[in-house]
């Protein structure tokens, strides 16, 4: 494992922990898109189908379990917790899951490395992860005023993506047979979706003002 990959995993982990801690301690999920969180839970559930069949490393298994448990706990908090669910911006979070899930599923049926259930689900999870942030970005755009934690959450997710791209470049030059177009292209698309948000995030940080997206 290289340093970019480890740093990428750690920022990914931190993004989820920041979100869970926010929800758990202030008992509020204001500004967080349930649609995005449900899509992430689906991403992890379909990608980690190999968790009990292919052992890669203890690190790999533990991280998979953490991502599954944390993503499903966040969804549980937002839907079921009797205090937290009241702070959910239901009327603003109107993005339709199916608009993202169906095209990703169709695409995965046609573009995949091998036409097996596990492989198609794995490819589907990559495509879906690339666009799963969209409901959250739409919600940010609508509410405009973003609290620090929500801003940090999206920032950490973006950092995770950027570090994964550096990891792929590093692996491409250091490992033989390391060519994965599906992963790279969907990963690149995902990272580009954050570019606009990053621009405003850095500006607000540089000028030391509260993050606000343009109307």
């Amino acid at each position: 494992m290289n340093i970019f990959r480890l740093a990428g995993d750690m920022t990914h982990l931190m993004s989820v922990i920041v979100l869970l801690l926010k929800i758990h301690t202030i008992k509020s999920c204001a500004g967080i898109s349930l649609k995005t969180q449900e899509l992430y839970a689906l991403v992890f559930a379909t990608r980690y189908l190999d968790i009990f069949t292919d052992f890669i490393s203890l690190y790999n298994t533990i991280m998979k379990l953490i991502f599954l448990a944390s993503s499903f706990s966040i969804v549980w908090y937002m839907r079921q917790h009797k205090i937290v669910r009241r702070s959910y911006d239901k009327d603003q979070d109107t993005f339709r899951h199916l608009f993202l899930i169906l095209p990703c599923l169709l695409l995965a049926l046609f573009i995949n490395e091998k036409f097996t259930f596990k492989e198609v689900m794995w490819t589907f999870s990559l495509f879906l992860e690339a666009v799963a942030i969209l409901p959250q970005l739409v919600l940010l755009q609508r509410t405009r005023n973003i609290d620090n934690l929500t801003g940090q959450y999206v920032f950490l997710l973006g950092a995770y993506r950027a570090l994964y791209i550096l990891n792929w470049i590093y692996r491409y030059f250091t490992e033989p047979h390391y060519v994965h177009w599906i992963t790279w292209i969907s990963g690149l698309v995902q990272t580009l979706l954050y570019a606009d948000f990053f621009y405003y995030y850095f500006n607000s940080w540089k000028n030391n003002v509260k993050l606000q997206l343009p109307a």
Binding site: H12, D54, I56, H177, H180
Partner: peptide, 10 residues
């Protein structure tokens, strides 16, 4: 080489 492929990523 396959077991050191992209599938070891999260």
């Amino acid at each position: 080489a396959e077991q050191f492929s992209v599938k070891d990523e999260l």
